Computed example of a mutant assay.
Amino acid sequence: MKNSNTVKKRVLHPRNLHHGSYDFTQLCAVCPQLSPLVIHNPNGQPTIDFSDHQAVLILNQALLKCFYKIDFWKIPQGYLCPPIPGRADYIHYLADLLAQSGNGEVPTGKQVKVLDIGTGANCIYPIIGSQSYGWSFVATDIDPVSIKIADLIVKSNRNLTPFIKLLLQKNSNAIFDGIIKKQDKFSLTICNPPFHASMEQALAGNSRKVNNLSKGKKVANDGLNFGGQENELCCVGGEIAFLTQMCKESRSYGQQVYWFSSLVSKSENISPLKKLLAELGAKQVRVVNMAQGQKISRLLAWSFQQQSSLLSN
């Protein structure tokens, strides 16, 4: 098997359904609202204005309908609208992790139970994971509006309702505490943690992104092209503080969860987190590098077990 830690720039996971350029003819056929938003780049190829939040939202609707059979997917203005190919990569690399931990085959079906920390209004990881592998999800968030909208998405799509349960985290200072009950067992936990320490940092980062996407063209944009509420983008101390807390909390649930995992945006955070996990007694730690377009990211996974029966329960 090819080492999943070795990836080339702009290369998605082999099982990712979103390789290559978007087929806008196919996408517009399933989502006609996308048609008037399609433009052409300097090479004459069809695309959209990725600095336009509404265009990104409708592109996502088209992708979800075309590839995951999702007929209804709407999120409120200002909520995080995720880039789907990159989110799918996280799911597929976690599937490989489970395969490597088992008999070499990717486990499918509802017996694979996954906990999504901070699912947001978009509920994107449970959608992709349930429709790609048939996994069952408990999806949590501290924001009641996010839970309400995600629950509406699930209940509006019959192919989602058997697989996804929404749960409000009532303690905004906790991650797993209050969510994982004594009887719960999970094969995986997943998370896309808050990246910034403040909304000022988030807006500054978005301005740089918009300028890159617009190729230097002046863009009137006072918000975030991919959206995002403060709790989705920021926490006190930024990414490293959030993940430090996650690692510390995870030890208490080490026999109920086989693999804990999270995306890690800043490469410099990997080393201190690995050191912390060693101090906490983690028996397995994996870092998987991923690349989508110009973006390089990585997932960190850890387990307090050498092997587990959770994959076959």
Results as ranks from 00 to 15, higher is better:
L168M: 13
Q245V: 00
V287Q: 06
S262T: 13
W259P: 04
I190Q: 10
K217V: 15
S156C: 11
K182C: 04
F226D: 14
M199N: 13
N171V: 05
V219G: 05
P193W: 04
F186E: 09
K275G: 02
H196N: 14
A174G: 15
F186Q: 06
L280C: 02
G178I: 13
Q284G: 03
E279V: 10
A220K: 13
G238D: 08
N269C: 02
L276W: 00
A202C: 08
L277N: 00
A282R: 03
Y253A: 03
K209N: 14
S187R: 02
S267D: 02
T161K: 11
L167S: 15
S271V: 04
S252M: 15
G228W: 04
L168K: 12
G281T: 10
G238T: 10
L243Q: 04
C191W: 03
S207R: 15
V257S: 05
K182I: 12
F226E: 15
L167K: 14
L213A: 11
K215E: 15
L233S: 05
L243G: 05
S207T: 12
L277M: 11
N206V: 09
L167Q: 12
S271R: 11
S271G: 01
E232I: 14
V285W: 00
I190W: 00
K185E: 14
K217R: 13
G238N: 09
E200P: 02
Q183V: 10
T189Y: 07
L280M: 11
F260Y: 09
A197G: 13
